[in-house]
Design a protein around this nucleic acid. Structure first.
Length: 230
DNA sequence: ACCCAGGGTCATA
DNA sequence: TATGACCATGGG
């Protein structure tokens, strides 16, 4: 029986090996997966809401629609009737729901005294405010904290859980906080920029035709799957 | 004609 | 804590 310390070290080594290989395949350009039209923090925040249960293609169309209407801005969203906002983002699906959520986020921004003020809050305060916002759950909140505020937060999504469970890694339970803590604790030397890359790589890898047989042969990056010991 | 997509809320047990 | 209905559009 390995000691707890040895097990933890082994976990860290395996994670380092996996992310090292993913890095070889996908490169260090974090923003490669998040296209050019994402120009700033507000784009990231609005995009995080718009992409919920929707593909990026449609989320980006909705984002461009907002930008073209001058509505990619908290005060502009609050000044607009909700149905009008919904119409702008219809293409991303569930328009009335997302319009309400965008306005809730805009409220949170205004309450904090502006976007920069919100993003500058201490991490725990930032997470708490985001989580208290209608339409913002754990994943969306952490996505904002990581990519808009540049905080050291490991974003957990369905891809991450599936992929790492497949290789026998992960926390005891399946709860969001357990998963987040697992990566943050097991990767002590990784900073916020590294976490941005890691999450991007996981998404890219999961979308690389690994859906049928995740992390095994048959996908374009099977070498990664093979070399991490699946 | 299905099925899914980078979720979250709300109700239920 | 955990499961299910619901939202609603575009692409495969």
């Amino acid at each position: 029986m390995m000691s707890e310390v040895a097990t933890a070290r082994r976990t860290t080594e395996r994670l380092a090996a996996i992310f090292g290989l993913l890095g070889e395949v996908y490169g260090d350009d974090v923003w490669h997966w998040m296209p050019d039209y994402v120009r700033g923090p507000m784009d990231v925040i609005a995009g995080a809401v718009l992409v919920q249960h929707t593909n990026w293609r449609n989320a980006e169309r909705a984002l461009e629609s907002l930008r073209a209407a001058g509505a990619l801005d908290a005060s502009a969203m609050l000044a607009m009737p909700e149905p009008a906002l919904a119409e702008l983002i219809r293409v991303s699906g569930t328009p009335s729901i997302k319009a309400r959520r965008l306005r809730a986020v805009a409220d949170a921004i205004a309450a904090a005294g502006g976007l920069e003020a919100l993003l500058a809050l201490p991490l725990e305060e930032l997470r708490a405010r985001l989580l208290a916002t209608h339409g913002v759950g754990a994943e969306t909140a952490d996505g904002i904290a990581l990519y808009a505020a540049g905080r050291r937060v490991f974003v957990i999504d369905a891809y991450t859980k599936r992929m790492f469970r497949r290789v026998g890694l992960g926390p005891q339970g399946e709860g969001y906080e357990a998963w987040r803590g697992f990566f943050e604790d097991a990767l002590p030397s990784a900073d916020a920029t590294a976490f941005q890359r890691y999450h991007a790589w996981i998404v890219l890898h999961a979308k690389a035709r690994c859906r049928a047989r995740p992390l095994c042969g048959g996908c374009p990056v099977a070498e990664v799957c093979a070399r991490v010991g699946v």
